[in-house]
């Protein structure tokens, strides 16, 4: 029993390797925030194209649907490997794409962020699409009838309502994204899981990984609680768009 406990909860190991694990966790957080922000922008753009009705955008709409299907259907790890193993060798690409070293982060960091964005953009596009479709059509029509252009109506009337309803599912996907950052260690990013694994290899003890798990929970547990609560709150209120109060 004692052996078991020491394997996972050796405070000495945790203490000694705390700086390394914490540094890894910081990378995890940076990667999550950057990829999270980028996939939100990318997902929203995809959703807007997919939901548009303009005839000129029909080809783009088809491409968007195909994109979303493909990247929801293949493993993130595969995308990570394809991006990191191909971009540096495509010679006509500009240097900042082949070997990005922006804001003091190494190229592998950006390949990882790109892979996460490409994949999670597809997931978030579906979240945004559901949010946009949940806004009653009469909202757009009322705005247009007042003389707003399509984009003005989207910006001032439809999107603000859609965004509110998608906050909980967005946060859910953010939690998933944060956990999935552990996959990018395969291309050499020492994020928290990789840091813990390296300690495990040196010490034959798993406590650094336990420490990593605890650090994850510090972020993901409150987020998950918040999501649960706001979903519960949104349910009874729901559709209060017109109809006698």
């Amino acid at each position: 029993m004692d052996v078991f406990f020491r394997q996972y909860f050796d405070l000495g190991v945790m203490w000694t390797h705390f700086p390394k694990v914490l540094a890894g966790f910081w990378i995890t957080v940076e990667l999550s925030l950057i990829a999270g922000a980028l996939s939100m922008v990318w997902g929203l753009a995809l959703a807007l194209v997919r939901g548009s009705r303009a005839r000129a955008l029909a080809p783009a709409r088809v491409l968007t649907v195909a994109y979303i299907d493909v990247f929801r259907g293949i493993p993130l790890l595969l995308v990570v490997l394809v991006i990191s193993g191909s971009l540096p060798f495509i010679e006509f690409l500009p240097r900042w794409v082949r070997a990005p070293e922006l804001f003091g982060q190494p190229d592998v960091f950006w390949f990882g962020a790109a892979a996460l964005t490409v994949t999670y953009g597809a997931y978030l596009a579906e979240v945004f699409r559901a949010g946009l479709e949940a806004v009653p059509r009469g909202q757009l029509e009322a705005s247009r009838s007042l003389g707003m252009s399509h984009s003005e109506a989207m910006r001032h009337v439809v999107l603000p309502q859609a965004v509110r309803s998608v906050v909980p599912p967005l946060l859910n996907d953010f939690i998933a994204l944060m956990k999935d950052t552990s996959l990018v260690q395969v291309i050499g990013i020492v994020e928290v899981v990789r840091a813990g694994r390296e300690v495990q290899g040196e010490t034959f003890n798993s406590s650094a990984l336990t420490l990593g798990a605890l650090l994850f929970l510090v972020v993901t547990l409150p987020l998950a609680r918040f999501v649960d609560r706001s979903m519960a709150r949104n349910r009874p209120a729901g559709a209060s768009t017109g109809g006698p109060a």
Partner: peptide
Amino acid sequence: LDLVRRRIGMVFQQFNLFPH
């Protein structure tokens, strides 16, 4: 077209007020 829509007001059966 937007300009013309501004000159024509419309009121709907379901109000369609902006709830936010």
